[in-house]
Design a protein around this nucleic acid. Structure first.
Lengths: 361, 361
DNA sequence: TTGTACGCGTTATCAG
DNA sequence: CTGATAACGCGTACAA
């Protein structure tokens, strides 16, 4: 039943319009419509145009659920991260979302609250939703077997973490160990002997190792009393940690596993009238904008998030393409090396070996 | 073909296992399996157990795509926001994701980069994906017609913005106008006459209005030279804006539409040796943790994000439930009123009307 | 209690 | 160039 306008029934009832509706409208078969809509050359130019015309008038929007079912791919990528409060992880998510979008993928975001079971649950959901791939910032306690099982199921997944161990799946990551090593070594080489460390627990084991090794390599004995574990990367936790660390005396340097922690500690020190870096040197991690614009611009461990996300997306695409034969080979590991962005919060060593604005151990 | 273990074919080939596979394994029909899996009472307790047992052994994971197709709901909620760099919006997303998760929904996250066309595109994609609902932080230039068309299509959507205009869809929002009014009025009442304003352009019109009205109500003439528009909520933009504003002289107070901008400006002022709040008073917006732990703790406009997200989720659920008959009624508007979190960055007025630590205009 | 048949909206294969 | 017909995996009447 073709008219100048559209069939009354269709425009009134707000049921979603399907290919079938536009087929009826034009007296065509459903599959001609399907072909016409994808600009198949197997369809007459004129009918193609008519179909597309009517599709627009009817406000046809394809049902990707149905499409996914038959094509066996959802064009959805899952992204799991512990908490949204970590700016670097969020920036990573943002950059990745952009890149995915450009290739017709969308992102399903899930948070685990750093809970092992939530993470496992999230992975199940994503598998259930037939996602074409997964990015995962693993939580502290690794779901090693779960991760392995996903890999065995040939579901492309890229871990956004790693370190000095063998990851259970393909991964792209910034080497936190090296970052922490550089930070602690820098402080040590400036002459500090009592270097405190604030970290976020199990999730920061790599950083912890880097810190310890740097001390050892610089002839400093590790002192567990100088290490504080917090459960959140916040200014507040940094502030409170400083309040615990410094009163016991002797600490002249602090390395925090997050800029927020470092900045919170910085605030405490300043409130106490301590000078930075003269009385205490501080180094953070992540190089947030807040570090650069802090009261005392903060030295911090930094890396190119853009580069990492590019590599991560490339890797995932490769996994999606190869899919089948990758399974048995060993997981790919791609590593980004962080560097130290030096600012004034830790003083500096001049050419002749003199250390300025920095109290020596 | 039942054995003690599992059919060899099944465990070797890594094709996803379906209900059919477990049906074959037990010599049952597909639908008995389906029923057994959902704990239907219409199925024998013993077979139910056997089915669930085998399902577990086979590692059966339901295909939600197929389920969505028949049930006509995806259990996916779309979430659109301009940029992920806004911490408050991200926190909103996080809190909402938690609440959704608890009810079996998952979140598809999309960013628009504050681009009108991207936003429109994102909405199309979500509709195409048959999402059950949408949360939208609209960009500057509203896609009024698009938003209306989504509403007319009976797709539940909650806008996370609003103001002194009639929103095209249901909305839950913090009244930015009032927040800005309070901030500017506070500065005016402290005696400031030349109050600068940094804002993010079209997205901040409500705040702009609040600022202007507050000036007027306090007998201060609006001076466009004291207003700076930036394209990004960053420390850097705040820093640069301050560098433009203050050298021209006379400005004694600054209100920024974001804490980042305010903190960047604060940094510039401090670098110039200006005292805060004695030489210049500063007020920000959002009350981030960074505001509280700033060099000079920052007065800022604040509101309960938790409360807003709770209301937003409730509203969306209501829309999902009612669906049909809501269409014609006017959109629901729920408003949260912000308040001013006063800290030391703007001085204060004592009981007897004296203003301390605050240079009078 | 269990099995059969059909539908969800789309794509793909194969005739005509 | 176009039209039946059969998938895709699951849910649900209805029948046995």
């Amino acid at each position: 039943m073709i008219r100048n306008g559209l069939t009354a029934e269709v425009s009134k009832v707000s049921k979603r319009v399907r290919q079938e509706d536009i087929a009826k409208e034009l007296g065509l078969s459903i599959n001609s419509v399907s072909l016409a809509l994808k600009n198949s050359k197997r369809i007459n130019e004129e009918t193609r145009q008519r179909v597309q015309q009517v599709a627009k008038e009817l406000n046809y929007i394809p049902n990707s659920i149905a499409r996914s079912l038959v094509e066996k791919k959802s064009k959805i990528i899952g992204f799991i991260l512990p908490k949204i409060t970590n700016p670097v992880q969020i920036e990573t998510a943002q950059l990745i979302e952009r890149k995915l979008m450009a290739n017709g993928y969308n992102m399903m975001l899930m948070t685990t609250d750093s809970d092992r079971d939530y993470e496992s649950f999230a992975l199940d959901i994503l598998v259930s939703r037939q996602v074409d791939g997964i990015f995962l910032f693993p939580t502290n306690k690794q779901n090693q077997d779960k991760i392995r099982s996903i890999r065995n199921a040939h579901i492309p997944m890229v871990l956004l973490s790693g370190g000095n161990y063998e990851p259970a799946s393909d991964s792209v990551y910034m080497n936190q160990y090296k970052g922490a090593y550089k930070a602690a070594a820098h402080l040590a080489q400036l002459g500090h002997r009592k270097i405190a460390f604030i970290h976020g627990g199990a999730a920061n084991m790599e950083k912890y190792m880097g810190y310890q090794t740097a001390l050892k390599d610089n002839g400093i004995e590790f002192n567990p009393e100088l290490v504080i574990t917090v459960d959140k990367y916040s200014y507040e936790q940094g502030y409170l940690s400083a309040a615990k660390l410094f009163p016991q005396g002797g600490v002249t340097a602090l390395f925090a596993s997050s800029d927020y922690l470092a900045l919170g500690a910085l605030r405490w020190c300043r409130e106490q009238g301590m000078r930075v870096p003269e009385d205490v040197a501080i180094v953070g991690f992540d190089d947030l904008e807040a570090a650069q614009y802090a009261e005392i611009p903060l030295t911090s461990v930094t890396y190119k998030v853009e580069e990492l996300t590019t590599l991560a997306v490339e890797l995932l695409y490769r996994l999606i393409t190869e899919q089948e034969h990758t399974t048995k080979s060993k997981p790919t590991r791609i590593e980004i090396e962080p560097s130290l962005q030096i600012r004034s919060s830790c003083g500096y060593k001049s050419q002749n070996g003199e250390v300025s604005a920095c109290k020596k151990g």
